[in-house]
Design a protein around this nucleic acid. Sequence first.
DNA 1: CGGTATCCCCAGGGATACTG
DNA 2: CAGTATCCCTGGGGATACCG
Lengths: 144, 144
Amino acid sequence: MSLGNKYEPDLRPIRAPQQDLKQAKEPPHEIGTCRLVGDVLARAGDKWTVFIVRLLADGPMRFNELRRGADGISQRMLTLTLRGLERDGLVTRTVFPTVPPRVDYALTELGRTLLVHLQGLGEWAMENRPAIVAARAAFDARED
Amino acid sequence: MSLGNKYEPDLRPIRAPQQDLKQAKEPPHEIGTCRLVGDVLARAGDKWTVFIVRLLADGPMRFNELRRGADGISQRMLTLTLRGLERDGLVTRTVFPTVPPRVDYALTELGRTLLVHLQGLGEWAMENRPAIVAARAAFDARED
DNA sequence: CGGTATCCCCAGGGATACTG
DNA sequence: CAGTATCCCTGGGGATACCG
């Protein structure tokens, strides 16, 4: 199985690389579903995707606007992140044939539906931040 | 700034490592919120967390049960993933002083509330899988 | 059984330089 | 302005061996 594209996340079943696929017993919770969720979360969870998607929530932005907005991102990673999002149909890339060139990136409808979930997770994170911080402190105290 | 614990995700602002923090202009969308979401998603999105959380959705499981359930995970990564979840207060670890030892892992209430969001994302992934696959195919065709 | 400790590899990603 | 191309280095994570 070859991956179709360099921007495509590796969706092959997670297991030892060259290991043979036996897959005897029925896996719990639909292994396919699980992998897909993991895939989505891997995309959503990589270092820059969330920043980009949130920046685009308010409307289209140009390449360098995003660069400034996601403070600290390298040009390379911005390009890679945007290409990945574009390939998955979450973002559109529009080139204006002017000089100097202008390229706008915008969320698609699909991208907006994902944004909703990300915002949900964001609210969860905000609401439970104190609990998480407390849990960490307790854990750290416990283990000397 | 030293990180308090080896299981703690690095929450320092994402930027060039030794770069000075100027942070002059007000960042869009509350940069703190954004980082927190990114953090949560980084936890949720790492290679194994989703598998583990879903396995625990139905009730407590022992170490080796999880190992078998998350097919392909290494012992090391299972331990690391579980420790991270435990530290964040998402999972409890219960040791029974029997011989041989028995250790149960279970979702906390906090863990369950996260599970809800993960499942939401899971449904999103399932519903939009065809759209994503189509978008990828179209993108790949476009770029020769 | 349920872990640590160690070694080691390679891909994710930053820095830099060049281009249409 | 909006990217490629190249180099290089770090740390995520697999394999293996050992321990309470």
